[in-house]
Design a protein around this nucleic acid. Structure first.
Lengths: 194, 194
DNA sequence: ACCTGAACACCGTTCAAGT
DNA sequence: ACCTGAACACCGTTCAAGT
């Protein structure tokens, strides 16, 4: 059988969700496709490159349309939740996406969409990028912890997060702190009409 | 020769700084100590446990005294910079510490110290923890990116971060956004005297 | 208490060769 | 263009046995 990149990515997503990131090996993907491991290197230069494609696929699957008519803070909130939901939808999704992003491969669109929303509100480009990265670091860090915690619980622990360390409430609260900080610097053009 | 945990951690720190996290294997540590890999399992239950001890060691080495007489925001700022400097002081330090923290092993003190500083300002415990985690997610995410970028540059790339994506300036700027958001919710007891 | 020796069950990646 | 077969140079972890 002959495969394309998309077939391989699809199979990888299946393994990820069923067995987790630790079991997502080149050899495993190859064997599930009935290929030799070396065959994958015809489609991807390295495992990192393949994982980046998988990360992008997860984000694409969870993508929701932009709402350009909404206010900048509503858009940033919506983008953050879209990202969170997309990562939570697959086992180890947050860790995979965060790692791919840290290695500078794939996952370009979230930063750009966040920065665009902020620039649309009149923030200058440099500030918009820093603010977008600040939001993104929070989202990745929070959701990674949240997912680790969920999986630890569903794997038989008693603890149901009694401290509320990493649920939706603390996600929205942490995010609101950053949004408030950004709001505090909003330029004249972004102020609501009086 | 007979070794203790501290000897093993010390050797691991040396390998980390000289060869990076990817080469910090149990077999490498053992061979540099003249031991069989299995000997390490007498001192640590798993590689994760050993890495957590290494992460704690890096943070201990970069520790600076608390300044209880300073204002809460000065203390949070100082703790964030202490953490950043401690991680930047060793190759792949940020990735190691962030990973250990994500796996819930070791690295307990930064969260607690941040939360304590906020509670001292009159914030309630739940808010203090969420705010501390928000700061921590930012610090881990930013410094991980910063260090990846630095190492990519020192490894022969031309790019000297022309976009200022992850330097001290954007660290302070991102952090100030979060601090402003926290400030916005400060309780009565934390307000400056009029 | 601390370590050896040997094994188990894996990895990512390269490369000549095949169709 | 896409893949096989075989190899290279590794992994983390377990466990009986030694001192």
């Amino acid at each position: 059988m002959r495969y394309h990149r998309t077939d391989i990515v699809e199979r990888a997503v299946g393994i990820l969700d069923a067995y987790g990131l630790a079991d997502l090996s080149m050899r495993r993907i190859a064997s599930e496709l009935g290929l030799q491991p070396s065959a994958l290197y015809h489609h991807f230069g390295s495992k990192q490159e393949l994982l980046a494609a998988v990360a992008d696929e997860l984000l694409d699957r969870g993508a929701r349309p932009d709402v350009p008519e909404a206010s900048w803070d509503e858009r940033v909130l919506a983008l953050s939740h879209e990202l969170r939901d997309a990562m939570l939808a697959y086992r180890d999704g947050a860790e995979l996406v965060a790692t791919a992003h840290a290695y500078g491969l794939g996952v370009r669109s979230p930063v750009e969409r966040l920065a665009t929303a902020l620039e649309g509100a009149g923030f200058d480009e440099a500030f918009a990028r820093t603010a977008a990265m600040t939001v993104l670091h929070f989202v990745f860090g929070h959701v990674t912890g949240e997912q680790a915690h969920r999986q630890a619980n569903s794997a038989g622990a008693i603890d149901a997060d009694p401290l509320g360390r990493a649920d939706t409430g603390s996600f929205d609260l942490g995010l609101s702190l950053i949004l408030e900080g950004i709001r505090h610097r909003r330029p004249a053009t972004a102020k609501r009409e009086p």
